[in-house]
Amino acid sequence: MNFLRVPFVLLLTGVLGLAGCSVHQPTSLYQLDSGDPGQPKQSAGVAVLLGPVSVADYLQRETLLQRQADGSLTASTDGRWAGSLSADIDQLLLRQLAWKLDSQRVVMAPAAANFTPDVQVVLSITRLDSGENQPAVLDAQWRLLDRRGTVRDSKLIHLEEPHAGTSAAQVKAQGVLLQRLAEQLSAAVKPVASQPLVAEEPKKAAQPAKTRTDQDKPKIPMASPIRTDLEVFRF
């Protein structure tokens, strides 16, 4: 009996070992490519508040998603994000904008109470994905607000970027899309930051209420007699 149990134990050990290898198969971790942004030099450049930046709900996950030809999304089996994708997007856009505007005064929302931005960028990213045979696609909308909170510019963006098909190539292409978005944003921010504030219409001084006088009272015509056989008064 003991002799027969030994092969069974060895077989069971081998099966468990193979299962362990399949469960602990290494997974690649990815981060967005922020390019090579330089260090902004102007400490007194344009003041920009970046945010709120909202990202579509389906992107709020660690798994790297793959877009299929029919438009559906599947989870990648060999890759996931190394941390928060939303945080990666924020930092990429922040560094790119600061570099392209050459300003150290580009901050993420919420900002300190004493920070007064020349321009606030409100951004919504509704799509950022790709597939092995599908290009990387970015859909977004921005709104630019001046110092008084008045919307000065608004735009819908659709960008596409081809890639080689691998997960690494797809992530790189998505990073390139965000760099292109930052380039367009910086070009839109500059004229808004230099625009004068919208002048407020002067308020009209309140007119004092008039006091009713005897001259304002309606005048009743005086009766004048008409000489006929009868005394008739015309009013």
Rank of each mutant, 00 (worst) to 15 (best):
A209N: 12
K204T: 08
V23D: 00
K203M: 11
I125A: 02
R147Y: 08
G165W: 13
V137Y: 02
K155V: 08
P191F: 13
E160N: 13
T166P: 04
E231P: 04
K190R: 15
A98N: 08
T126H: 06
D214S: 08
V119N: 00
A56I: 06
T27M: 15
Q66G: 00
R227G: 01
S224Y: 08
L128Y: 00
G17N: 15
V192W: 04
Q215V: 14
W142L: 10
R143T: 07
S43Q: 15
I220W: 11
Q120G: 13
D139Q: 14
A75G: 14
P225Y: 06
V122W: 06
G17W: 13
D78N: 11
D90V: 06
S224V: 14
L185A: 12
D70N: 13
A164E: 15
G38K: 12
S167H: 07
G165Q: 06
L59A: 02
A82W: 04
P110H: 10
T150K: 13
A82L: 10
R80C: 05
Y58V: 09
E161W: 06
E62A: 13
F115K: 06
A136R: 01
A205W: 09
I226A: 07
G71R: 11
I89V: 15
V106C: 10
W81K: 00
V122H: 09
Q184T: 01
L50S: 08
L181K: 01
R5L: 15
I157L: 09
K100A: 07
D33Q: 09
V55E: 06
Q42N: 15
V176Q: 06
S22T: 11
P221R: 10
W142C: 07
P191K: 14
Q66K: 08
A193E: 05
R212K: 12
E200W: 05
M108W: 09
W81F: 05
L138G: 04
L29S: 09
D118L: 02
A47E: 03
A188Q: 07
A69E: 07
N114C: 01
L50T: 08
